[in-house]
Write a protein that binds this DNA or RNA. Structure first.
Lengths: 364, 364
DNA sequence: CTGAAAGCGCTAACAG
DNA sequence: CTGTTAGCGCTTTCAG
């Protein structure tokens, strides 16, 4: 059915050496660009290599040098633009320094992540960047550290693990935005996340992802500060595919005591939540206020444009990769990494709730 | 600054063999799960391996077997959701068959693609999936074929190269949608693409990307059929970053003879074009009609929802990966691959042009 | 500067 | 079933 090209034996240094009439060692030196080689020899070797179509076998090279010039990257979902952008930051940076990237998708599945890390280690990548699915349970990350291979974390922290982490601290913005919503009269503020959890959220429950934990925590602080009860029943985890997210959203806006504001944990969730809201005939922000994490171009295009919490995603990827490469090459850590700060961007999706009049408020 | 873990020497089969008091060969067989090993030996070896924390060196393994269980994937821009989704299709499929993926981004730069392919070949990936930046100039793809390594193409064709290609044929839909626009009275239909080109488009000019060539061609056919002049001046290439796309869009809708309809070649372009349209105070579809390639969730959320040309992107990735793996493993090609068809989804962004009354029409 | 030889960690004959 | 002996293609001593 096709030109199967008979996978003919690759030409090796030995072949080149013979053709150039020098020793294998000299040929290797000329080809690998190391050691001492006379101009004459180099020329002959290079010519022979060209002639024969020699290509180095990087596997063999890596075996000897112990370096593969490859970075392992483990993320939850490359389809999610958040990670798409971060990955771009990583690959761009890697390429600049001559590294390649092996990318593994875990679907935020813990076991898949463990396997991924192991495979990468076995493949002898020079270092790893992982966005850990769990910030509390990570024996595989410890394993990486024990192996001595450089590791940096992206997007989420691993509590108690001594490792450079490139993530923004969402606590403060979450607090701020919640406070603002409360100030407008919102008491029923929902939060929707894909975070997997065996049980539904209960107040004070430990959350596996530091990223999500910080966000919920910021919300709670804002409520506490006003001595208002935190609507824990509106924190919804396990929002998986579009269908289930929409179901959650519908549930949130219906019923006797519906949410008057919804915060979506990422762009994919936001898309489905907004769709569900539109379908149920409610209007943003008149009937319900809306905030999402991450700032994508489409959020400016819909009406009203969405109020978002932006984070420097590309920059995070870039910073993670360059820190990792520094570690790999044994260079000292940069004096100070880039500041990775989130930012609340006010647009048009937040307003006072219809029930504002009923609320008992007194804000500082 | 951190726990540098002293990268201690890895434990090898030899170490395990010694600990288990068997020969290296037997240990290797037990560990590698091949050959004949008695239960007793296997047990002792596995126990010793566990004890010592043995991990196989996949590099060494690959050197011997000639298989790395790795697929090389070369795309233009992983940040573009189109490729994000396709990549997801690839990685999901690869994982199921036990393959990993090395991903390289070319930024649609021809030289970067050549380098990418070479690096992948040198790293001895088992096969390659590439979305070629050029459908007309691809010595590096020939090189791959000569190397005998399996190759499949994604998203774009390479004219004259005998290679399985997973892309949808956009000719017919492009023709259809253009015809429809013409039917509504549009004569000034623009097409905006990121395709790089030294020169601005002129009618009949050969386009480097088969994908784009097909689309423009479909448009031309529709005009020709109606004996209408094809507005070649409205085909805009080189639309790079958001800023330049917006500039192009502004240019299209201004001037003495502006476009009355715009077709965006992908989601990223669409985002910027729609934004530019909104900013210039024009309304879709009253002032200008709009169609984009690819169907993303956000296109349903903006008002009016966008008319799009959907394509099975994930499926393309999936199909490409599974075909490649089949080739690698020497299995016969599937009787028939999945049908990869595009589909025009009518939503609300297309209407009659304001100038419809002036047009001289007579459609079949 | 050059070449011979050893070895990276593993698999693959080949005899027992 | 088991052990011995060769390599895979390259880098790296170590002598010259």
């Amino acid at each position: 059915m096709s030109t199967e090209g008979s996978r003919r034996r690759d030409v090796t240094v030995a072949d080149v050496a013979k053709a150039a009439k020098v020793s294998k060692a000299q040929a290797a030196r000329a080809l690998g660009n190391y050691g001492a080689v006379s101009d004459d020899v180099r020329e002959r070797v290079l010519a022979a290599a060209e002639e024969l179509g020699y290509r180095p076998n990087e596997l063999a090279r890596s075996m000897n040098t112990g370096r593969s010039n490859t970075l392992g990257v483990v993320v939850g979902d490359i389809e999610n633009p958040h990670f798409g952008l971060a990955t771009r930051g990583i690959t761009d940076t890697a390429k600049k320094s001559g590294y390649n990237v092996i990318l593994i998708n875990t679907d935020e599945e813990k076991q898949a992540e463990v396997d991924a890390v192991r495979v990468l280690l076995d493949k002898r990548v020079d270092g790893l960047i992982v966005a850990p699915a769990s910030s509390t349970d990570f024996p595989h990350l410890r394993e990486v550290q024990e192996s001595g291979r450089p590791l940096v974390l992206l997007d989420r922290a691993a509590e108690g693990l001594e490792v450079e982490t490139f993530a923004v601290d969402m606590g403060p913005v979450s607090y701020e935005s919640t406070k603002q919503l409360i100030g407008l009269g919102h008491l029923r503020i929902a939060f929707v996340s894909t975070l997997k959890s065996e049980q539904p959220y209960r107040e004070g429950m430990a959350l596996e992802s530091s990223q999500i934990a910080d966000r919920v925590d910021g919300m709670r602080r804002a409520f506490q500060e006003q001595a208002l009860p935190f609507p824990a029943d509106l924190v919804r985890l396990n929002a998986g595919d579009a269908g289930s997210i929409k179901a959650v959203a519908r549930d949130l806006v219906t019923g006797p005591d519906p949410a008057t504001a919804i915060i979506a944990s990422d762009g994919l969730i936001a898309l489905s939540v907004v769709e569900a809201i539109q379908e149920s005939g409610l209007r943003i922000p008149d009937d319900i206020s809306f905030i999402m994490y991450d700032d994508f171009a489409w959020t400016r295009l819909i009406s009203p444009p969405l109020t978002v919490i932006a984070q420097p995603v590309y920059e995070m990827g870039r910073a993670a990769a360059s820190a990792l490469i520094r570690k790999i090459e044994g260079r000292p850590a940069a004096a100070s990494g880039p500041e990775l700060h989130p930012r609340l961007i006010q647009r048009g999706s937040v307003g006072a709730p219809r029930t504002a009049l009923e609320g008992t408020l007194s804000l500082g």
